[in-house]
């Protein structure tokens, strides 16, 4: 049986227990950053100090917020579309070998084309607006979703499917009650990869041609040799990725409590 720490106090302790190491590492990184800049090891126009960077972040906070929202919107929209298309494609591929054989090589081909290389093409085709950014985000996030969903749908115990057959279950019921829920743990590991990639996709789209978004902010700052703003943009960008990743993890824990609890148990037994 799992050992559930009692009450909110126990849960808080568990969170602290889990998070103090990464937090300590992060603090250490900032300390090194601060040490490098404060000892003038590197000139400040190349690497601004943490203090300067944070100063820019508070000073220009409304400017940063505005562009952060743009990038977040592109990322989330691209991610959601990638999930919908990816899951549907995976389902069709698992149920039809013909479709799988036809689609899989094409998907692989689409995956190995560097998205950064084809991003300019989307600007030519779709203009400077929201669409090309979302398209690049979708393209880059789509692949891990399809792969993980296909793996998930195929991971179902064949005996379970035989059992469903002896129960006279319709294919739809078998999918809804057995195959789909069984595939979710795999899907979620793909979603975690996809959501971080979607940020990259959106920013790549902005690099190629945009007048808003964090990619635009970074390019602007780069052109003005405004390294504090460049660093601020980078920090915010990684924060978007981390926050979205955590949101996907929370969704996983809410949707698959059975999976999370089992994984937790495995972890305690191996430690």
């Amino acid at each position: 049986m799992s050992m559930n720490p009692g009450g909110s106090e126990g849960r808080l302790l568990a969170v602290l227990e889990r998070s103090w190491r990464p937090v300590a590492l992060l603090v250490a990184c900032f300390a090194v950053w601060w040490a490098i800049t404060s000892t003038q090891l590197v000139p400040p126009y190349l690497v601004p100090s943490p203090g300067t960077t944070l100063g820019v972040m508070t000073e220009k906070s409304s400017y940063l917020w505005q562009h952060t929202w743009v990038t977040t919107y592109e990322t989330v929209l691209g991610f959601v579309i990638a999930v919908v298309i990816g899951v549907l494609a995976a389902v069709v591929m698992v149920y039809s070998t013909t479709v799988e054989k036809t689609l899989y090589p094409v998907l692989l081909f689409a995956q190995v084309i560097p998205k950064i290389a084809i991003a300019p093409l989307f600007v030519v085709w779709l203009g400077f607006g929201l669409t090309p950014k979302v398209v690049v985000a979708v393209l880059i996030a789509f692949f891990p979703v399809v792969i993980s969903m296909v793996t998930g749908l195929k991971s179902v115990d064949p005996e379970m499917l035989q059992l469903a057959a002896t129960m006279g279950a319709s294919p739809l019921k078998t999918f809804a009650k057995i195959r789909f829920p069984a595939s979710l743990p795999h899907l979620f590991s793909g979603l975690k990869v996809a959501v971080t990639l979607a940020v990259t996709g959106a920013v790549v789209g902005e690099f190629v041609g945009a007048n808003e978004g964090l990619g635009f902010v970074i390019l602007q700052a780069n052109g003005n040799l405004d390294t504090p703003m460049l660093f601020a943009g980078l920090l915010v960008m990684s924060l978007i990725g981390v926050v979205l990743f955590v949101l996907v993890e929370i969704a996983e824990q809410l949707m698959l409590p059975w999976h999370a609890s089992r994984r937790g148990e495995a972890a305690t037994t191996t430690l």
Partner: peptide, 24 residues
């Protein structure tokens, strides 16, 4: 049908695993 492995759905309680037969 009973197999060597119980082949239960991990996300369902014992009772709901039994009731799968009825739902199907």
């Amino acid at each position: 049908y009973v197999f060597q492995r119980a082949a239960l759905l991990e996300w369902r309680s014992a009772r709901r695993n039994i009731l799968l037969q009825a739902e199907m």
